[in-house]
């Protein structure tokens, strides 16, 4: 049944026992994103160490899909270089925009592959992407800050 593809056990686990929830100090940048259609909100904080993502933390209000995807984001991105993290970000966005036709890469996305079923529910894709878009924003700001005022925004 399609419904069970949406609410995979992995997703429900991350929802009930989220990783990285609770905003941490210190941090290099944060981003707050809102889903205007449902009022869901998430804040993502990023701390860099050199060119690596040292820590990601989040806080938010949202449905199981949006909170589980923030938890998965934390697991997938932590410890990777910014370049690597952005490649994973792109893969997740491609998976979510794929209407269920994109084969997920488990190497890159780890538990993120559980969201393949969400891509078949257009109304829920935004829920899954909310924290990932906030992460991209926060990381761009962190990189710009570390690079100083002349730095690009990644």
């Amino acid at each position: 049944m399609q419904f069970e593809q949406l609410y995979q056990e992995i997703i429900l686990d991350h929802y009930k026992h989220p990783h990285g929830r609770g905003l941490r100090e210190p941090f290099d940048a944060e981003a707050h994103h809102v889903n205007p259609t449902c009022g869901d909100e998430v804040t993502i904080r990023v701390r860099l160490a050199g060119d690596a993502i040292e820590e990601i933390s989040f806080e938010g209000m949202g449905c199981s899909i949006s909170l589980a995807s923030a938890s998965v984001l934390h697991d997938v991105m932590s410890g990777h270089t910014v370049t690597d993290a952005l490649a994973r970000h792109d893969a997740f966005v491609a998976l979510m925009s794929g209407r269920g036709q994109v084969e997920p890469d488990e190497e890159l996305l780890e538990d993120g592959v559980a969201f393949a079923g969400v891509a078949k529910y257009p109304a829920r894709v935004k829920c899954a992407l909310l924290s990932w878009m906030a992460f991209k924003d926060a990381t761009a700001r962190a990189v710009a800050d570390v690079a100083g005022p002349v730095g690009g925004t990644a």
Binding site: F3, Y7, C38, G39, D40, G62, C63, S64
Partner: peptide, 28 residues
């Protein structure tokens, strides 16, 4: 339980309900 999740499970049973802020965010 978030309304999106409530609405999604109900939809799987054929039950169509509205979820979200209902264009009345100040009331929420």
């Amino acid at each position: 339980i978030h309304p999106h999740d409530v609405g999604q499970v109900l939809d799987s049973l054929g039950i169509q309900v509205r979820v979200g802020h209902h264009c009345a965010r100040p009331t929420c």
